[in-house]
Design a protein around this nucleic acid. Structure first.
Lengths: 254, 254
DNA sequence: TATTATTGTATCGAATTGATACAATGATGG
DNA sequence: CCATCATTGTATCAATTCGATACAATAATA
């Protein structure tokens, strides 16, 4: 198969890669009032894993992360940020890599570049769920979005990586006003509140949330959104990046 | 010289190291109302650099960072946290490494492990200035503490690394109550305020600072400190780790 | 046209914060 | 030994923010 030949070519291309360092991306999306992350299913194993990749010898690690995001979701110019580097000696179970190689017709030679200890740099991305078009990579044969509270078992230390990504997202939500990256261009206040509630994992008081968000003066109020149901129609809002920038700069953090 | 032989031995021990990945530590201390960082002077260059090191093949990166801290300051069990990983392709000027090798009697062979692109994981540490006993490493012949506003030119991207460390320290100062790690065991409120002002880079209103800190209920008030000057004697305080832990856990961040 | 669910905003008291004031108190010096 | 001085600890008050609740406005529906 062509795909298998691609895999074999890649497995033999270790000399083009920066050694023993990988990228893993925790890609967050928001759908049906659920915060989801994108997982790939490893070929011929029951494990799911975070979309990841390796770094070319002459590639910035940030660029490698952008490549992972682009190849797995088709998206570019997305909010993407490094959050932590994972370097425990035992974080990768090499048997999983061996299994994948075997099942794809490659004999795992001792000393092969993929059968080493790997340190991985974690990035998290916030994408508009409706715009992402996921594609599996050479190591995987399926993908899906999973609610962060209902994830299948993950390979390696990927549960740990996901947890830390979520902690960082929660911490940075207000600090960097990044939640809007998870919504379509226009949205209602109720949708925004639901997003915040889902990320923070707790209920917020509607009136106070609305007051607070509006007081930031980072939203542009558009027309009303009609035919939503038997009730008053909500306004649509658009996130105003310029106003947000002014707000973040004026914020006296210290 | 013995020291030089140590250097040569180390230069030839690349096969014991995790490849192309290093650790750099931004070690903060507080003295004379100045926030300082510890810098080493590279042998035979005019550049200063952050204390750093490499990672053994079978060593967690956190442990490698602890080793750097211990070897350079003699200190253990110090507040030490990873903050960012720097992976620009051009971040290391290999000529500096070549120079150091040459000046120490080692011919820099092409392909030598030290003459590669390196990615570095940044850690920052907060130490009690009076307890640290700095020691230069094999690459350096001197060290000193430098006010963060009066640093000499640094090698590689170490200015960038220092800046990011300071940003993280500022951001985490209240969030994790870490400032106390920079003070001796007992201190006055004025000393604590001066520390905060120095880290945050701005003046604070004394009465409000005192009210705020005391309201956290994380300090133990001890006896008064006598003979400070022609004025009322201030109380000494001790940071109560247990109370602080309770406070941080009770803090509803989200 | 009455009903219903949701939206946008107002309101009120509690809690927090910024700014200022002031009494208490150790040393110093005449 | 007492007036002076600088600093400390705390109080106070207005301004601001925040939690909680209330309520009028309004699209769709029956």
């Amino acid at each position: 198969m062509n795909n298998n030949q691609d895999f074999i070519d890649f497995i033999n291309s270790g000399d083009k890669l920066f050694p023993c360092l990988s990228i893993d991306c925790v890609i967050f999306g928001f759908h049906d009032n659920q915060l989801k992350i994108l997982l790939l299913k490893f070929k011929n194993t029951d494990f799911f894993a975070l979309p990841g990749g390796f770094i070319d010898k002459d590639e910035n690690i940030d660029d490698a992360a952008k490549q992972v995001l682009k190849k797995r979701t088709g998206l570019e110019n997305i909010y993407l940020e490094q959050f932590y580097t994972f370097g425990e000696t035992n974080r990768v179970d090499i048997e999983i890599h061996k299994t994948i190689m075997l099942k794809n017709g490659v004999t795992p030679e001792p000393g092969h570049w993929l059968l080493q200890r790997f340190v991985t740099v974690g990035y998290y991305a916030l994408v508009d769920f409706s715009k992402a078009v996921p594609t599996p990579d050479l190591f995987s044969d399926a993908w899906d979005w999973y609610d962060i509270n209902e994830m299948p078992p993950l390979a390696f230390d990927h549960e740990n990586i996901s947890r830390k990504a979520l902690e960082t997202l929660r911490l940075m939500l207000d600090f960097k006003l990044i939640g809007f990256n998870l919504l379509p261009e226009t949205f209602t206040m109720a949708e925004l509140q639901s997003l915040y509630e889902t990320i923070l994992g707790k209920k917020l008081i509607r009136a106070n949330f609305q007051r607070k968000i509006l007081s930031l003066e980072i939203l542009e109020r558009l027309d009303k959104k009609w035919s939503g149901g038997a009730h008053k129609a909500p306004y649509l809002y658009r996130f105003d990046e310029k106003k947000a920038k002014d707000f973040l700069e004026g914020k006296t953090l210290y």
